[in-house]
Design a protein around this nucleic acid. Structure first.
Lengths: 219, 219
DNA sequence: CTCAAAACAGGATGATTATCCTGTTTATAA
DNA sequence: TTATAAACAGGATAATCATCCTGTTTTGAG
């Protein structure tokens, strides 16, 4: 350390700075491709400080998952959907907001939850369970919102769990493709698909009705 | 080498054995977590032989992507869907076949394409483009099949590209959740969602109808 | 048969990396 | 003030890893 320099302990701030950098780097390069040396340099943190707050790389990643990834899903998905007038409108708003944000920033880094889920789910059961919990909370929030809409009379009798599962899956898969093609357009495409599901009448009626409809002429 | 032992050159077989092991290990542990030493031991191949066929680890992964992952998507998705009586029936058959296979083997390793796409898309543009091509072929096959169904009069006027995008996204996302929860049930749930999309009326009519609906009362 | 290239063997190497360890400084409770 | 633990510094270390290199064996063309 430079002579004459004073030091001020700031454990919370230092922990936060490390998590900031780790969240960002794990998202951009993945867990295994991010070295602690890189993180230390980017965060301006020494090895001693890093090791003090996070004794192992796994502990750091676990903190990123439980504190940052979970919060990201909450902030971009759960809270907006719960605050929306309806589940359908909330889902549409999130899809469109994310698509627009990605198009403005010009590149797609993917969904932080899915990125880490793919890399770490099979590597370690603690990772897997922490990630699975976030998926479950995400789906439960959407299903709960659908149920609330149905109680209010504003939603058809679709299966809430099914709608939630399809929505999360469609978003996750669309982000996967968007990341691979570096094009957020597929998000909008998949949103339209999910919306048509949300608006379709319940399964039993649908099947019966379809029999009666005349075959559409195409081309 | 042991004295008196003869050696038989078998370049194709050795290349295939390396690719077999690499495909399997990359799928189970990912690219960065798989060391060439592990691969060499598992394949029973020396460093010299490995380096002769694949000068770098990246070259090996590229071969896995272009030869094995592309073939896996073709065999489990493209060919069955194209061979099915209709796109919808083909999609349903694939979802159910995969779900059943996963339930029988008792664990979920995820979709090889999505696994590598998440880990490698941002790492290297060559990786990314090779993976994007596979996604594109996958979607195109489904869209083409829908168009064929429509020409035959057996499919409603849904947008083929939209149906393909939603199907691939729903499958990819469902596999992501199945892998994280180690439970293939979500695949069946998402299949039902996609099926109801396939049966819903075309988008234009839908949108117009929506305007007329009264706003749902929430809380 | 000859010989050049392909196929393979196996160790060397340098770079990277996560973890640990020994100190030093700062804060806090008594 | 003093003692004790927390907070931080910074280098050591041992293991790992991808690549490279030198040498040997096999193969096939001419």
């Amino acid at each position: 350390m430079a002579i004459g320099k004073k030091r001020t302990n700031n454990p919370d701030g230092m922990r936060r700075r490390v998590l900031d950098v780790a969240e960002d780097t794990f998202q951009a390069r993945g867990y295994h491709a991010s070295s602690l040396g890189d993180l230390m340099a980017a965060a301006g943190v020494t090895g001693g400080a890093l090791h003090h707050h996070f004794p192992t790389k796994k502990a750091l990643a676990l903190a990123v998952i439980e504190e940052r990834v979970a919060a990201a899903v909450r902030e971009t998905w759960i809270d907006p959907v719960l605050a929306a007038p309806s589940a359908r409108e909330g889902v549409r708003a999130v899809f469109e907001a994310v698509a627009e944000e990605l198009e403005q920033q010009g590149y797609v880094r993917g969904c932080p939850l899915n990125n880490l889920a793919h890399e770490l789910s099979l590597a370690d059961d603690e990772f897997r369970l922490a990630l699975a919990r976030i998926f479950a909370d995400w789906r439960r929030a959407i299903a709960d919102k659908i149920r609330a809409d149905q109680l209010g009379g504003g939603e058809s009798a679709i299966d809430p769990e099914r709608y939630a599962a399809l929505t999360v899956a469609a978003y996750s898969g669309a982000m996967s493709m968007a990341k691979t093609s570096q094009d957020a357009g597929v998000l909008r495409e998949c949103l339209k698909g999910v919306e048509s599901f949300a608006l379709s009448p319940p399964q039993g009626r649908l099947k019966r009705r379809r029999r009666v409809l005349p075959r559409p002429k195409v081309r």
